[in-house]
């Protein structure tokens, strides 16, 4: 996904004089050819993330379309107030593109992880959030985002599905009768494996904001399981509101709000978080079983 992002952004710089890329050293080498071709529109501010977002706001104020890129904890968490004030409050947008989703950087530790990134955008409002599940989704999402002026966050991951599904709305993968399971981005293939033999509907989206409420309702289920690759429950309020006129049940699965203080691989973290196929199968089976299973505790 990261290489597809670099290639697409480089092509956008060539094709659209409104496009600018703003970096804080991360991926600086990958953008070196683009920087040589467009020295005024590829800006590497050094290891200065507050400035990276401030510069993006300034560029947007002059009518350019900044694409801002770093690790998720640096482009989102560290520069949160700049996102809030230098973009939202100024009434301008940018395309923020992160790598290092949730525990992609498992061996780097907590400092390089930001499972709460999507939740933070929910505190600001107005952001479109894309969570591509495959490299083939990255190009179309970025190209579409670069063509307007609204705020967009694109969350890249080293986790991915076998097949790309570039459409942004809710896509039905298979039909079942017991519940609807909505897999976001790179969770799809793992969820599919977890559901083997279970009589449930599976749907996919790479765009949790705005959440495709109409698509969710069209699935026709009042029992819903959300499987998100970031903080568990990030979309709970949206889904609850979407179904507020219906008696419904919701199970929200995702990354728990805890610093595990463990390294290991992303696969290890998926297992510890109950987000591998076995863990998901256990959670989803319990939820769709008669009685609905016990309430799930939060770590």
């Amino acid at each position: 996904m990261r290489q597809t992002f670099v290639d697409t952004a480089t092509a956008l710089l060539d094709d659209d004089p409104r496009t600018a890329v703003v970096l804080a050293d991360i991926s600086g080498a990958a953008f070196a050819p683009a920087a040589r071709a467009h020295p005024d529109r590829v800006v590497n501010v050094g290891i200065r993330e507050q400035l990276m977002l401030g510069v993006a706001g300034g560029l947007a104020l002059t009518g350019l379309r900044p694409i801002v890129h770093s690790y998720a904890p640096f482009v989102v968490d560290r520069a949160y107030e700049q996102i809030k004030l230098d973009l939202n409050h100024q009434g301008v947008g940018a395309v923020l593109v992160s790598i290092g989703a949730s525990y992609d950087a498992s061996s780097e530790g907590r400092t390089h992880q930001s499972p709460g990134d999507v939740a933070l955008f929910d505190t600001l409002g107005g952001w479109t959030v894309h969570v591509p599940g495959h490299a083939d989704e990255v190009g179309p999402l970025l190209t579409a985002a670069a063509a307007h002026d609204e705020p967009v966050y694109i969350r890249l991951s080293t986790q991915h599905n076998a097949e790309g599904r570039p459409t942004t709305g809710m896509q039905t993968i298979r039909r079942g009768s017991r519940a609807a399971v909505v897999a976001v981005g790179p969770m799809l293939d793992t969820v599919l494996a977890a559901m083997e033999g279970l009589d449930v509907t599976l749907a996919y989206t790479n765009t949790p904001r705005p959440f495709d409420v109409k698509g969710l309702r069209a699935l026709g289920h009042s029992d819903v399981v959300l499987v998100e690759p970031y903080l568990a429950g990030t979309s709970s309020a949206v889904v609850s509101d979407a179904l507020r006129d219906l008696p419904h049940r919701l199970l929200s699965l995702g990354v728990e709000c805890v610093d595990l203080r463990r390294y290991g691989s992303p696969e290890d973290h998926a297992r510890w978080q109950g987000l591998d196929a076995a863990g998901l199968r256990q959670s989803i089976s319990a939820f769709v079983a008669p009685g609905g299973g016990p309430a799930r505790g939060r770590g």
Partner: peptide, 9 residues
């Protein structure tokens, strides 16, 4: 920061 970005833009 906004001023730097504006000047660059």
């Amino acid at each position: 920061g906004l001023g730097v970005g504006t000047a660059l833009g």
